[in-house]
């Protein structure tokens, strides 16, 4: 149990002493999660809107598939992405294995179903009258999309935060696709895995606390934005 306290003290030290290894892992984590969040929101919100807004043949089946993908195991995604990004794989020539964008691609696959499913649910939950109101106030098709999404903004924000939580904390993809390479693709979570493997439990706890601190900062900003929105 002593390593819990040790971890707390160490976490404070790492942050205050500007420990370069720690900051490298923090920076990589931020890069990877920013990239994957940007990509999954950009693709996922319009897809989720389409899925939630329009009625089409096979919609229920698509929903079931998307909802199933919410349970994607990260190690499985990691393996899948590795198979594609490996030099022997179909996208091998792009040289994305063991790179930050490579991890971001894997995490995008992880986050996308969350964003799509929760956005679709949010849009489905909106009052049908909203559509009539927007159209009758003169909205064109794009304004109808943006206006509808803006009405669902709180639910979509919650979707983004859920996806962010999953992306920040996953270790399977980062390990498999990133390779946990020091100064390059070592994220906070793969560093925790490494330190734990090395028996440095205190260090692992310290890194975990730093990850929590980042998540806290993100949620704080979002709740501030939300209050003012």
């Amino acid at each position: 149990m002593s390593f819990l306290l040790e971890g707390l003290i160490k976490a404070i030290h790492l942050l205050l002493d500007m420990d370069p290894e720690t900051y490298s892992a923090v920076w990589t984590t931020l890069q990877v999660s920013s990239g994957s969040m940007a990509a999954s929101l950009l693709a996922g919100i319009p897809l989720g809107f389409f899925l939630g807004y329009h009625d089409f043949r096979g919609k229920r089946q698509v929903r079931i598939v998307v909802d199933t993908l919410l349970a994607l195991p990260t190690v499985f995604v990691g393996l899948l992405v590795y198979a594609f990004l490996s030099r022997q794989g179909p996208l091998g020539s792009m040289g994305l294995l063991f790179t930050v964008p490579g991890i971001a691609i894997g995490q995008t696959i992880l986050a996308l179903p969350i964003v799509v499913a929760l956005t679709a649910t949010a849009v489905e939950g909106l009052d049908r009258q909203l559509q009539f109101t927007l159209v009758s106030l003169g909205a064109d098709r794009l304004q109808l999309l943006t206006g509808t999404l803006w009405e669902a903004r709180f639910a979509i924000l919650a979707a983004a935060l859920t996806a962010y939580g999953r992306v920040m904390t996953e270790v399977g993809i980062s390990m498999m696709v990133g390779g946990n390479i020091k100064w390059h693709t070592r994220t906070i979570t793969t560093a925790i895995a490494l330190e734990t493997g090395k028996g440095q439990f205190g260090m692992g706890i310290a890194l975990g606390l730093i990850l929590l601190a980042i998540a806290f900062a993100v949620n704080l900003s979002v709740s501030f934005l939300r209050k003012r929105a």
Binding site: D127, Q129, L130, F132, T133, S136, L137, G138, D140, G147, W150, E151
Partner: peptide, 16 residues
């Protein structure tokens, strides 16, 4: 018609 015709629905909806 986009900018000339407008409808007030029965259960009017206000944006949030």
């Amino acid at each position: 018609v986009r900018f000339t015709v407008t409808l007030l629905p029965q259960e009017s909806y206000l944006l949030k």
